[in-house]
Design a protein around this nucleic acid. Sequence first.
DNA 1: AAAAATATGTTGATTTTTCAACAAAAGGAG
DNA 2: CTCCTTTTGTTGAAAAATCAACATATTTTT
Lengths: 219, 219
Amino acid sequence: MKKYLEILRKCPLFFGIEDESLIKMLDCLGARVESFDKKYTVFAEGTPAKYIGIVLSGSVKIIQIDYYGNRSILSSVFPSEMFAEAFACANTRSMPVSAVADEMSEIMFIDCDHILHTCQNNCGFHQQLIYNLMKDLANKTLMFHQRIEITSKRTTREKLLTYLSIQAKSAESSVFDIPYDRQELADFLEVERSGLSSEIGKLVKEGVIKNKKNQFEIL
Amino acid sequence: MKKYLEILRKCPLFFGIEDESLIKMLDCLGARVESFDKKYTVFAEGTPAKYIGIVLSGSVKIIQIDYYGNRSILSSVFPSEMFAEAFACANTRSMPVSAVADEMSEIMFIDCDHILHTCQNNCGFHQQLIYNLMKDLANKTLMFHQRIEITSKRTTREKLLTYLSIQAKSAESSVFDIPYDRQELADFLEVERSGLSSEIGKLVKEGVIKNKKNQFEIL
DNA sequence: AAAAATATGTTGATTTTTCAACAAAAGGAG
DNA sequence: CTCCTTTTGTTGAAAAATCAACATATTTTT
């Protein structure tokens, strides 16, 4: 597990925990690591939630596919970040989303029960982990509010511009990369791919933005 | 505070806490109660988050108004339920939403810092409250996923039907009331009011649903 | 390097939403 | 009960999104 220390240290679940404790803790929590090839499903919609996922390398996308086959992309998860923690904590019987590896990825799984309930060793770190989980869930809620700010806009153009300006702000630069290709961006913004493509074209022509592949610049 | 006991007992923040402890606890937490007339703002977008709100009577709506004045309704909050807890826990400097009293309402406010940090009396209940907050935030996340399931649909009809079927399921009955008038429902579903009205009309005509004011029945 | 597969851009027809304006209905105040 | 206000329904024109189909570009595989 030591080789993942660099990444795990930055995971919000382990905030305020010393390296030495962290290593021991992982053992006690029964953490295990699995690898997933590109496009492989890390967990599938409809299955019960039990484990918290932590991306160690690569990246994962959280997606939701409805009755008619329409895909929504909820988020992109990068190294040090957690996913599925809300479902694991809430003990959801059937997860409303799937997680798919975006590239070759290593994922750490931790049984949420091991975090929430004291173990036989009576480890003292559970309180800290619960506190950290609570903070993380509060931040995730903020993320959802941001997403609503984007998707509640009524036109493709407004959704796109709202998304791009949020990205620029969080990158603290007017030039930034986005983690989505065109289809994925469309599925994130809840719009049509072809309409999105042409809207990007228009904005470039109008001199509002510059774009090359996944890199955007707001002018 | 005793007169609110019935309501507070059912609040997820106080899950697993005995009545006697609860009463003492409120004192220690510096809980205070305020009344709001119908349509009054409980807290405004843009202000810093500090307090968790608990509805004691009446009800509150959480809304977001964008740059162009378009309103989104995020949720309705009823007695025993909390609101703004995610912002308070995350220490948000500027809240992305407002809360408005839907009718004459009494709201209890608790400073989130008093929950998260041990007080001078060294009360032993902080851990339980943090745990409860964590559970609550996990459940709120599930709510957001449900909302995305609804608003990601592309047509007014599909959004409405998805919303109604979720409501029916949670009411465990094909007949149920919704907490929104037409304009509010439109702002929740992120659609146009007039289009929503006519869509409801069509569904009734087609025999898919019955509707009288805020009461719906799925046939 | 060529071939195959995937991703992106473009277009026009069709569907749906939005917008604005007004009529009808319901609710509240005096 | 009547007047006034608010909510809801209805309509048609305009704007925008969706859909389908295809051309082009890019990436991956062989």
